[in-house]
Each structure stands twice: as structure tokens, then as C-alpha cells.
Amino acid sequence: MPAPTTAAAVANAFLNLQDADRGTFPRIDPMKLQKLLFYAQAWWLAYKEPALFDEEIYAWPWGPVVPSIYSEFRNFGSQPIVGKRATELIKTGDRIYDFRVVAPTAPPGDVLDFLSMVWGSHKHLTGIQLSNATHAPGEPWAIVKDRYGTLNNKPPIPNDLIRDVFKEKIGVGNTNTTAA
């Protein structure tokens, strides 16, 4: 069964949720966006299957990263993302250059409701605070770092590991996450 949405669509949903929110909170910068993507995938995996989006999440030195979204927003550095949304490259034909850049389809309503809950739970944190949380002992990023010893190769964080750690947080199952 395919994932219900894409990482680009989730990124745009968070940026749209931020724009609609009249509260006071740290704005979404590239680091915060990456961590929101991670937590959305993690909580989705804890409650549902298949994954929220198919793109892999990698263990980079500053925490979990979806490379395509990193590439899309890296020029913002540590500044808030303003006036830009993620895009997707879609194959349009059989030739090597048959691609075009498009805006992703918005996630379905139930996914948007879920993302709104994730936003509500995490919006008050900065990207650095969210990154620090992903580095805590027993978190998927920390388990991958402990396993590899270095993140120079930016290894993927397996969805099974993410799912098991977050299922344990909600008290579902008794999993062994150290064998990842």
C-alpha cells in the first residue's frame, strides 16, 4: 500500500499551518521543518501503517533529515522560510529529460488533521530544541549514531526503528530498538 502523501506535501502543510496560526511561536526555519517532518513520520508510524511518506529519513549530524526537503530550503540557512513551498519532480515521458517541477498534491483531510495535531504539539519549539530532542538517548537518530559511531555517511534511519521507538512511547508493544 502506498504512503498517503509525500514529504514535500507534508512540508507545505506545516508551512501553511504556520501561516494560518496567529499564535506566538518560533517560525519554521529549515531545521525546524526537518524535525517536524521526522516527528510527523514517527507519530504516524506509531499509530498507522504504511509510512506517512515514502522518502527515507537520514541521520545527519544535526538530526533526522529528508534530503529532498533539505535541498529545497537550504538557502534559508537558519532564517525562517518565507514565500516558498516545496515542489516535486515528476516524470512526464519516456525520454531522459521528460520531467517537470510541480507543486505536490495537498495531503488528504485525515492526514491534514493529523499534521495539525503534530503542529500543535511541536510548534512552540525551535529547530535547535527539536534537534536536541532527536539526539536524546533511545531516540532513533541516537540509536543509529550509536550503531555507526559516526554520521559521516549520513545513514538512513529505518522506518521500523522509528515505528518501534514511537510505539513504545505510546505504550504499544514491547520492542527491542537497540538491535537496529
Score class of each variant (00 low, 15 high):
G173H: 09
F14D: 02
A106F: 15
E49I: 14
T24Y: 10
E55W: 11
T6S: 04
E88L: 09
A180E: 08
E139Q: 12
N132K: 15
G120I: 09
G171S: 08
D113E: 11
Q34A: 05
V172E: 11
M31G: 00
A133W: 03
Q41E: 06
K48R: 14
F114P: 00
V172H: 14
E139I: 13
L115R: 10
R100V: 14
L115G: 02
P156W: 13
A59Y: 11
T177F: 04
F73M: 01
D160Q: 13
A106C: 09
N152E: 12
W141H: 08
Y47I: 08
D29T: 07
Y148E: 07
V172C: 07
P156S: 12
T175S: 09
F76A: 05
N16H: 15
G127T: 02
R163M: 11
A142T: 06
D146A: 11
P50I: 13
S78L: 08
R95V: 14
G109N: 13
I162E: 00
W141N: 06
K32D: 00
Y58W: 10
H135L: 04
R100F: 14
R147Y: 14
P80N: 03
W62V: 13
Q41D: 05
N152R: 13
L130G: 06
F25S: 02
F53Y: 10
P64N: 07
I143E: 00
I128K: 07
A136E: 09
A59R: 09
R163K: 13
A7D: 01
D21W: 12
L45E: 03
Q41H: 12
Y39F: 12
P140W: 06
A3D: 04
T92K: 06
N16R: 15
N75P: 02
N174P: 06
W44Q: 01
V102I: 09
S131C: 07
A11D: 00
K91T: 15
E72A: 02
S78Q: 12
T5Y: 02
R85D: 01
L45Q: 06
A103E: 05
P137S: 10
A7N: 03
A11M: 04
P104H: 08
T134C: 01
A86S: 11
G138Y: 06
D160W: 13
T6I: 04
G173P: 01
F25R: 06
L15Y: 11
G149H: 04
I90P: 01
A133S: 13
N174W: 13
L89Q: 10
G120A: 11
N176Y: 14
A42G: 04
M1Y: 14
G83V: 13
K123H: 10
R95K: 15
D54T: 15
P80G: 03
G77F: 04
P107L: 03
K123A: 09
G138P: 00
I170K: 09
L36R: 07
T126N: 01
M117Q: 14
P137A: 08
A86N: 08
L33P: 00
V144Q: 01
R147P: 01
G23D: 09
L37D: 00
L36K: 04
K167C: 07
K169N: 10
A13I: 11
L115N: 06
D146G: 06
Q129M: 10
D19L: 14
F114T: 02
